[in-house]
Simulated assay, not measured.
Amino acid sequence: MTLFQALDRNFSTKNIGYKHFGYFCLMKWMKRIFDFYLDASIHVAFAVFSLVQITWLTLNIPSDKHLSWFLFFGTISCYNFIKYGVEAEKYLLVANRYHKNIQLLSFIASGLALYHAYYLSIAIWSGLVILVLLTVLYAVPLLPNAKNLRSWGGLKIFIVALVWSGATVILPGISVHDSVPWDIGVEAFQRFLLVLILLIPFEIRDLQYDQKELRTIPQHYGVTKTKIFGAFLVLLFFFGTFLKDRIGYNELLGKGMLFLGLGCLMYKTKRQQSKYFASFWVEGIPVIWYVILVFLEYTFSPHFAIAVSS
């Protein structure tokens, strides 16, 4: 081997090493960005945003962009407050740089939420007061020695489902109606069930972390019975569609696909989960549902509907 061949081979080896190192650094940064996306509650905010858009589509009511974006930015700030700073001083005095970035994002999101809140109607504000009160009771105890609603394990997921249902169905409904029509009530009930179903994988995952005093559903009934309960909720969710006075074909088809997906979710859910199973895939189900509905709207005519009752 000549000197030039040896140098060329050495250079090629170093070049390959640099490429591998560059790829490693890129993947490391992508993982950091992805983890921040999840930890800063951006993913769950997109889930809420998607559910609001689904409400506009399925109920065929005019959309309100200010309500949609208020809920998106409000979800980021509220969820981060609940996760990282239930105590005010912990939320304001943050030493960790990573949490400082989440705190900064939360403050920006709060400001944008307030901007969009200015354009909301009085009717929406009246509903928001109730939901905000429930959220505060969920995160903060009213008395120094009292427990918040989050500490009541058996009740916790029902409170979360109630708030999500109210925010993503009732608020859009009262933005265009003086009262809550029957179909909106049915949709709110289905949304309540959907959120309960999506929370079950989280409850099962957290078995190893939750204190026994919480008495969560998996702690009380076990993983298998909890999954059976979830499967029953999936059935109730889908067949609840037929309680509506008017059902769109696209809505029925979309909920049919969601029904199959939720059934698979209950089957796949287990105690030992991968890192992103619940925090990314389960929370991403509303986004996937929204994408399916948008595809159906553009593929098939949105005007066909089934009149269930006169």
Rank of each mutant, 00 (worst) to 15 (best):
V294W: 02
I217P: 08
G263T: 13
Q272F: 10
A167W: 05
D206L: 11
F34L: 04
G256D: 00
L236S: 11
T269L: 11
L105R: 06
F277T: 08
T135L: 04
Y221L: 09
E297F: 12
H220V: 12
F11D: 06
D8C: 01
N145P: 00
A305S: 07
L162K: 09
V180C: 02
M266A: 00
M30Q: 03
K270W: 11
Y23F: 00
F239V: 13
F238L: 12
Y209A: 12
S175W: 06
S165V: 07
A117P: 01
T55P: 01
Y79K: 05
K225T: 10
G74W: 02
S279H: 12
W152G: 05
A47M: 11
D210C: 14
F107H: 13
K90M: 10
A6F: 03
I76Y: 02
L7H: 13
V186N: 06
S63L: 00
L26A: 12
W29L: 10
A45G: 07
T75Q: 05
V136N: 01
A117V: 06
L171G: 05
I285N: 06
L198F: 15
Q272M: 08
L134F: 03
L59A: 05
G222M: 05
I130G: 03
N60Q: 07
A161I: 11
L59P: 04
I102M: 01
N96C: 14
G166S: 08
N148A: 05
E297R: 06
F72L: 09
I292V: 15
L253A: 15
A88G: 03
F232N: 06
L134R: 00
S310V: 10
L3G: 02
I174V: 11
F280S: 10
S126R: 14
G240M: 07
A88D: 09
A146D: 12
V287T: 06
L120D: 02
T299A: 04
D210T: 13
